[in-house]
Simulated assay, not measured.
Amino acid sequence: MRRAPVIPVLTVEDAADARPVAEALVSGGLPVLEVTLRTAAALDVIARMAAVEGAIVGAGTVLTVRDLDAAMEAGAQFIVSPGLTESLAKAAMAREIAFLPGVATAGDIMRGLDLGLDHFKFFPAEAAGGIRALQALAAPFRQCRFCPTGGITADRLAEWLALPSVLCVGGSWLVPSGPVDADAVRLRALQAVTAAGRGV
């Protein structure tokens, strides 16, 4: 979460796009890549992106321990889940892989703390109340740090990152659906890094 201000959230339909997308994002200053397990190609995409120099590739939309094991076998270095379950959290800890579970309520965060977790994905960020909601949630949980994801756009990036509890944000705007334009992806990555006030 400290390696880059934005974690691109990637839903890649064609594994042939994996390398050019990863290379564009890494060269644009965003080396931490979350590949969602929402397509048939996802595990192949993780494997291909993991071979790109400088890329730190993880799996998103990890819902079960089976998903976790498949993602790790493909080369995932971290996993992200839209929610928090005890079984998935304990499996991630047993396998010693970085785990970013989704939370949206105080109860979610307290369950995470009970499991020894203090870094969370705030999801779905905008639908769950946006910046004001996270500010309110973070106040009693000062030891926790968050990666808001869900509905965040480039024009609100700096506002989210200004929150003391936020280490980074997850964003799907960097690689929109449709044909891949690697130059455009790299430009959006550079713009995100600049908006966050960090150099490449």
Results as ranks from 00 to 15, higher is better:
116 G>E: 13
121 K>C: 03
50 A>M: 03
66 R>N: 14
40 A>T: 07
189 A>L: 02
156 R>E: 14
102 G>P: 09
183 D>S: 14
197 G>H: 03
168 C>N: 14
175 V>P: 04
67 D>I: 01
56 I>W: 15
144 C>H: 08
147 C>M: 15
52 V>I: 13
140 P>D: 05
184 A>N: 01
12 V>Q: 03
129 G>V: 12
71 A>S: 15
178 G>A: 06
121 K>A: 03
14 D>E: 12
23 E>Q: 14
106 A>P: 04
81 S>L: 12
141 F>N: 12
33 L>C: 07
100 L>D: 00
139 A>G: 07
11 T>D: 11
38 R>E: 05
74 A>W: 07
44 D>T: 10
91 A>Q: 09
29 G>N: 08
82 P>V: 11
149 T>A: 11
118 D>V: 00
109 I>R: 04
147 C>H: 05
82 P>F: 13
200 V>N: 08
19 R>W: 02
20 P>Y: 05
189 A>R: 02
38 R>V: 01
152 I>Y: 04
7 I>W: 02
176 P>I: 01
175 V>C: 13
10 L>F: 12
180 V>L: 09
156 R>Q: 12
79 I>R: 03
65 V>P: 07
121 K>R: 08
5 P>T: 09
71 A>K: 00
123 F>Q: 08
53 E>N: 15
150 G>W: 05
103 V>W: 08
193 V>D: 00
141 F>E: 14
138 A>E: 07
100 L>S: 01
126 E>D: 15
15 A>N: 04
40 A>I: 02
62 V>I: 13
12 V>N: 05
189 A>V: 03
56 I>Y: 14
36 T>A: 15
74 A>L: 06
81 S>Q: 10
193 V>Q: 06
81 S>Y: 10
93 M>D: 14
84 L>T: 04
37 L>Y: 06
130 G>R: 00
133 A>T: 06
71 A>G: 15
76 A>V: 04
27 S>I: 04
51 A>L: 14
108 D>V: 08
190 L>Y: 00
91 A>Y: 09
121 K>E: 01
106 A>H: 00
175 V>N: 07
155 D>L: 13
72 M>V: 10
14 D>S: 07
24 A>S: 12
54 G>A: 11
137 L>K: 03
175 V>Q: 07
13 E>R: 14
121 K>Y: 04
96 E>I: 03
75 G>L: 13
96 E>M: 11
143 Q>C: 10
153 T>G: 12
104 A>F: 00
170 G>H: 05
168 C>P: 06
41 A>P: 03
192 A>P: 02
54 G>C: 13
2 R>F: 10
117 L>M: 10
2 R>I: 03
177 S>W: 00
19 R>V: 15
198 R>I: 14
94 A>H: 06
144 C>M: 09
36 T>G: 06
63 L>H: 13
64 T>V: 12
115 L>W: 13
104 A>C: 13
145 R>I: 00
92 A>E: 06
134 L>N: 05
87 S>T: 13
190 L>G: 04
135 Q>Y: 00
40 A>M: 02
